[in-house]
């Protein structure tokens, strides 16, 4: 798959079919990859596909000028489709290099499983349904489902539906999708007062680095509401109340665009379980509007179009 990707990427650049390639190259730390954004065909040999290609590269599309060949897992492809629906990206300007994705390894889960930090591990490899973790020279084997990201366990689209070049055999969704995961189920069992307290506590840690927003392909506003000063919707001070308001409004703003790629939660430096908010919103959108973001590029965007026969008549 990697060889095919390198060849295709090189050919796309050589033939002038794209100006840019966006993919992954090995990162500077163990078990990491890093986005590779390049115009140089010689860089294509650095492209990799492995269980650590965490980033949703669609995040970079709106800011890049020119035609782009982009490596996309299923979830990333949904973000690309969503950006096409919103007219942020022109379909003809992207060449989607589709990766059938068996799920990405969540290193935080690996750390919890073996009680070591990621840089203390000798090796983490995936073999089919198993993950083999080597610590202090000893091999430990676990079912891979124990170390995949929660959103991967809930993945409805491992292989992009919308693509130009398919890099491997398509993969069906896992048979037992864990849609929400334990954390969300636990939260649902709480009273509203308990949930309020829970989120108040969690969001008291927020330092307003905005990594959750900046890493989100659905958050493409040139100017975010948190930066407005007239009126000032939210204080730019990391008080828990303002932090909570920021997250609630962000969540509502990405409703119908959020593809449950899980990036917001992954990047949070203070471990706020943000996916518990976004996934709940995703499910509500599905339940109320029968809409799943980024599944169909011909579908009209959920929150920005209106039809005569819609039930709500307050703005008719």
């Amino acid at each position: 798959m990697e060889q095919k990707l390198r060849q295709e990427a090189k050919a796309l650049l050589e033939q002038g079919k794209v100006d840019w390639i966006i993919g992954f190259e090995p990162g500077s730390l163990k078990f990491t990859t890093t986005p590779l954004i390049t115009k140089d065909k010689n860089d294509a040999d650095r492209l990799v596909i492995n269980p650590f290609i965490v980033n949703n590269l669609a995040d970079f599309l709106p800011e890049i000028k020119g035609r782009v060949g982009i490596v996309a897992k299923g979830c990333d492809s949904r973000s690309i489709v969503s950006l096409i629906q919103d007219n942020k990206v022109v379909r003809e300007d992207v060449v989607i290099l589709a990766v059938p994705c068996p799920g990405i390894i969540d290193l935080s889960k690996v750390e919890r499983l073996v009680g070591k930090d990621r840089d203390e591990l000798d090796d983490v490899t995936r073999e089919g349904d198993k993950v083999i973790i080597k610590v202090n020279g000893k091999k430990k084997e676990f079912p891979v489902t124990e170390v995949l990201f929660d959103h991967c366990l809930a993945c409805e689209l491992p292989t992009p539906q919308e693509y130009d070049i398919l890099l491997g055999e398509p993969r069906p969704p896992a048979p037992n999708l864990e849609v929400s995961g334990k954390d969300i189920e636990n939260l649902k069992g709480l009273t509203p007062e308990q949930r309020w307290e829970f989120w108040g506590n969690e969001l008291s840690r927020c330092i307003r680095c905005y990594a959750c927003r900046n890493v989100c392909p659905a958050c493409y506003c040139q100017r975010c509401f948190v930066e407005e000063t007239e009126p000032q919707w939210v204080m730019p001070v990391p008080r828990w109340q303002d932090n909570l308001l920021f997250q609630i409004v962000r969540n509502i703003h990405v409703a119908g665009r959020c593809t449950d790629c899980g990036e917001c939660e992954r990047v949070c430096p203070v471990n706020i379980p943000l996916r518990s908010l976004t996934r709940e919103m995703y499910d509500m959108v599905d339940e109320l509007f029968h809409f799943k973001a980024g599944m169909d590029k011909e579908a009209l965007p959920l929150m920005t179009h209106y039809e005569q026969e819609e039930a709500e008549d307050f703005f008719r």
Partner: peptide, 25 residues
């Protein structure tokens, strides 16, 4: 800068970065 997402992690959590903002409520 190409792959930078312009978040504040590397600066806010840097032990030597000291920039601050002032706001009135």
């Amino acid at each position: 800068a190409a792959k930078c997402i312009s978040c504040g992690i590397c600066t806010l959590l840097c032990p030597t970065c000291y920039c601050f903002d002032i706001n009135d409520e």
